[in-house]
């Protein structure tokens, strides 16, 4: 799997950019931020073993937030080809993707509750 290194402050991707790969954090830390009324708002931090951008290899929707390295960091790149080859060569490597999706669904369910709604 290809790895990429980032210096502190370096941008991994920006909101609005097209997405065709996911990332696995090997070392370091990343900050997830978005612009809210023109102001930068930090919405999460990613650390070792975190996966991010995984929906990009599944449905290619554009990024809507920005990820920046907080320190010297390293990620493995999960390309679409890599994702598809996992299907045949290493299906068990797909399990972390399932888990991360499951976690995000649970998190968004919680927010849905907070938000009210008899929506």
């Amino acid at each position: 799997m290809e790895t990429l290194c980032f210096e502190s402050g370096e941008v991994v991707f920006e909101a609005g950019s097209s997405s065709d790969c996911a990332y696995l954090v090997e070392e370091g830390q990343f900050e997830v931020s978005t612009l809210c009324n023109g102001k930068k708002q930090v919405i999460g931090t990613l650390k070792e073993k975190d996966i991010f951008g995984e929906m990009g290899i599944i449905d290619n929707q554009p990024r809507s937030a920005t990820v920046i390295a907080l320190e010297k960091s390293k990620v493995s790149l999960i390309t679409q080809e890599c994702f598809h080859s996992m299907e045949t060569t290493n299906p068990e490597a797909l399990m972390p993707l399932l888990r991360v999706l499951s976690t995000r669904i649970r998190e968004s369910f919680k927010l849905l509750n907070l938000q009210n709604p008899s929506a």
Partner: peptide, 8 residues
Amino acid sequence: DYYDIKGG
């Protein structure tokens, strides 16, 4: 944004 990013 969180999900689009962390998630995609």
